[in-house]
Design a binder for these strands. Structure first.
Lengths: 209, 209
DNA sequence: GATAAATTCAAACAAATGTTTAACTTTGCG
DNA sequence: CGCAAAGTTAAACATTTGTTTGAATTTATC
């Protein structure tokens, strides 16, 4: 199916609503109203609410894979630089696409749509495999420690970042950032999150600057 | 309202269903059927589906608070020991109560029930405050580094653990644990998770054994 | 500008949902 | 026992839900 501007617009609106209310909580009427289109257009364009969700995942996830793959094979970077770049990229992406990462979080818990599930599994495993190779390369070069639990390490990166987006408001309150403009806060927290996770990875991988 | 065995039984069933299908995805009929009670009993016992959820949160969260508080004020432990115990306790609790932690995760994303939201906020902030005092104590004793971002540190603990429970199956597949009995795997992974997080905290807090 | 295809719309549809009702059964207690 | 309270039930209720329909309108093509 060719993707038109209308498709893209509805996907964006649906993304925000799914993130706010969950898949079951956001009704087709909610989405149609927010997108300013007739109720019937959702079925007309996507076939069904389920398929709308699947389109959203296919659309959003296709962009993710390529970037990581390109980074890993880049020959001009050391494993150490690759790890740091990986973290920067990940943190930036999560902060930029908070709605979608919220949806991913819920879908991983709920496990209902088999197509979404398959996409998530594919992404997760291929991601872990790629990073494993990167780590192995660093271990051959004696930059990284032996016996790294790659998935646990990745859990720490994804967990810390996603945990942050769902408790962002508490973070602001606890650290007195309430009056800071949203844009300024985002810049600040991206830097904080990145350096925090890099610090953790340094401990896990055992490298020194 | 006094809590009877029936209350407890329904709560347990509802907990598992909410974790599997989400609050909106699990219907009152689902819960009644799974609990082996008549549909009307849910309203009779709890008032409504929403209040059932609230009861679940009040019930499950009341147990959590006390334990942490008791640990923090314990005078016979050093800050270092307290941190390590805290991690052990947390990892054990998450692994033991996976269903409830899944629900908490989704509810934090979705933010609908104001009472649940209030309980979550209270827990999160009071938790952060308690740990802050513990960290401050360690800093006075020159055991921990200066300038610790307590909430980011806690995000890493909770994020790593919750991320693990939602990607457990991928972890098994990736590390060839598929044939291991579930109980054995749980023991193994609790140990792995604990030592992993302790290692991270060592890097954050800067202490040495 | 005529014709066909694509798009949009209000209305209708059937199924599912949370909740209530009112009758019935069980329990507790003097 | 007698009887009131508590517990249980099947049925009904009013909404809400995702989806479809068939007519109207717009767009594209010749």
């Amino acid at each position: 199916m060719a993707i038109s501007d209308k498709h893209i617009h509805i996907l964006k609106i649906a993304e925000d609503l799914f993130a706010d209310k969950g898949f079951d909580g956001a009704t087709v009427r909610d989405i149609a109203d927010a997108a300013g289109v007739n109720l019937a257009m959702i079925s007309y364009y996507f076939g069904s609410k389920e398929k709308l969700m699947e389109s959203l995942f296919t659309e959003r996830m296709s962009a993710m894979k390529l970037k990581v793959e390109a980074l890993i094979v880049n020959p001009s970077m050391s494993p150490y630089e690759k790890v740091e770049t990986l973290i920067d990229d990940y943190v930036n992406r999560v902060m930029e696409k908070q709605s979608f990462y919220k949806i991913m979080l819920c879908e991983q818990v709920i496990n209902k749509n088999v197509i979404v599930l398959k996409l998530l599994k594919e992404l997760k495993l291929s991601y872990a495999k790629l990073i494993s190779e990167l780590i192995a390369e660093g271990q051959r070069l004696k930059i990284f420690k032996k016996d790294i639990d790659v998935m646990l390490m990745l859990n720490t990166m994804t967990g810390t970042a996603t945990q942050f987006i769902i408790s962002k408001e508490y973070y602001k309150e606890f650290n007195n950032y309430k009056k800071m403009p949203a844009a300024e806060f985002d810049v600040l927290i991206i830097a904080k999150l990145s350096s925090h996770i890099k610090n953790l990875f340094k401990a896990i991988l055992g490298y020194e600057q």
